[in-house]
Amino acid sequence: MNKILAKKELCEKIHQFKIEAPHLVKKAKAGQFVILKENEAGERVPMSIGGLDKENGVLTVVIQEVGKTSASMNRMKVGDSFSDVVGPLGIPTHIEKFGNAVCIGGGVGIPPIYPIAQTLKAAGNHVTTIIGARTKGLLIYQDELSEASDQLLISTDDGSFGTHGFVTTILQKMIDDGEKIDFVMAIGPVPMMKAVVNTTREPKIKTFVSLNPIMVDGTGMCGACRVTVGGKTQFACVDGPDFDGHEVDFDEMTKRLKMYVKYEKKSYDKFLEDEHCRLKKQIENTK
């Protein structure tokens, strides 16, 4: 059992949780992930690490509501506990002094960029972080990332804040301007990661991506998280989650991520309906 110590709504449907997990936090390194399970009947869901408070043993996880499990987790309150927080899983991000490092995050891929940017900076890199969102209201982790990076650049699809365009608009401009980039780390939705590696392929910039496919156990036992990297099948949970972005078969990954869409919808609809009924009853009872 891991208790929720604090909870904050970062934007619509995205919540940040501070979870008590001293042993895990002591061992965890940037780039690793955890598996959360809410209760007995709950799913095991892999989640990125959105911050490690080593001093107080507190794990930060950011959850976006996309289906039943995430919706239910986002309704948990301070003082509630996850039945299981498993980890740290996966291989930590390979960090060395590359020189100029660019960290790119999109959506709930932004939080895991934070500990990686911190570690890259601590290793002596000049860290530029680029984050992007559809619109200004969906931008998260600006304070954390401006503190962790030498420079923070922001894009919005609708131009409501920062550069009008995508994270790759900014990245492409850096490349066009002749800025020296030695290492790129990109975490976000598959189309974003795919766009980033397509941008860095030609100039041959070393680019790593962190993959978050469907998993069950997270320790190599089930093979649900198969991804094709360089023509070979890899298990994201034990061989990753970081892979050379230029070698990843993103199209296959996109299809695999959709494997349970029908089921997820059924489950989510049922959850929302049940919730609706519950709320209606509550209102009736208070009348």
């Binding site: 009947a41 709950g42 799913e43 095991r44 039943k68 499990t69 069950v216 156990d217 036992m221 089930c222 093979g223 649900a224 349970y260 089921y263 997820e264 059924k266 489950s267 049922k270």
Partner: peptide
């Protein structure tokens, strides 16, 4: 994976259990 989903995660009881 197939057996873990069905047994440990009780997918046979979906959507009562959350794993499909």
């Amino acid at each position: 994976e197939f057996l873990t989903r069905s047994n440990l995660m009780r997918a046979y009881d979906f959507p009562e259990a959350d794993t499909p």
